[in-house]
């Protein structure tokens, strides 16, 4: 591998952008395909499948055996609200290799006792996302769970602007209709608002906080594995 190819691969990772290194196993010839260039690539179908699965592996093209080194940024889950559902959600998300951060300005909720070992930021979402929490990007999922528009709305707005692959918000259809109206007043189109999963979670009839957490995580995984690629700009 050329040292500059290796440096480019590492730079893409540092910038939290996906990339695939294509190696011809027979002769070692290599090229790096950035996520933004995959659609126009002759191997786009194969590369897309590997990007979505996140798995490296062999592929065949024009009688050549290729190895695809797939590099996908680690997925982050930002939870708004240090609530009961979040307490169930955080450990389950860690088991799915999601890097979880919980944000809640209400210090009575955001206590280490309630969230042992979970990165917790007791700030308003705007303040949290402007500093202590790394900026949102396309490899982030955002779940707004406070039921309080003062806390949830700014986070949802930040998530929509950053193009997060998953945006979900707790609340009934009626609550969501009011939310869409507020977002409309803030300049977001109906298409923008349609990117918010609300009511949040797959419909599995979840009742308990842990069941709701499960439905949210199932929806995040489904979006990540099936739909994310459609959101590529």
């Amino acid at each position: 591998m050329r040292a500059d190819t290796l440096a480019q691969l590492n730079a893409e990772r540092a910038a939290r952008r996906a990339a695939i290194l294509v190696t011809d196993v027979a002769d070692g010839h290599q090229r790096l395909v950035r996520e933004a260039d995959i659609a126009a690539d002759p191997l786009s179908e194969t590369l897309t499948a590997h990007l979505v699965s996140g798995k490296s592996g062999l592929a065949a093209a024009e009688g050549r055996q290729l190895f695809l080194t797939v590099q996908v940024p680690p997925v982050r889950l930002v939870v708004i609200g240090a609530v009961h559902i979040s307490q169930a959600l955080a450990p389950m998300a860690a088991g799915l290799d999601l890097a979880v951060t919980v944000i809640d300005p209400r210090t009575a909720f955001a206590t280490p006792d309630r969230f042992p070992g979970v990165p917790l930021v007791a700030e308003w979402p705007e303040a949290a996302l402007a500093g202590p929490v790394p900026a949102l990007d396309r490899y982030c999922a955002v779940a707004a769970l406070t039921h309080d528009p003062k806390i949830d709305d700014p986070a949802l707005i930040a998530a929509l602007r950053a193009g997060c692959f998953y945006v979900g918000a707790l609340g009934s259809r009626k609550t969501h209709a009011s939310r869409v109206a507020r977002l409309g007043a803030a300049g977001f189109t109906p298409d923008d608002s349609a990117r918010i999963h609300a009511p949040i979670g797959l419909d599995i009839g979840a009742v308990s906080p842990a069941e709701i957490a499960l439905s949210i995580l199932a929806q995040i995984v489904a979006t990540l594995r099936r739909e994310r690629i459609r959101a590529v700009p």
Partner: peptide, 25 residues
Amino acid sequence: ETDILAAAEGWRRDGRRVALATVIE
């Protein structure tokens, strides 16, 4: 794995001669 690629770049930059092994199958 990605930390290892960063280390490979660092070693090369330090002037060490470096090989990379990758499990392909």
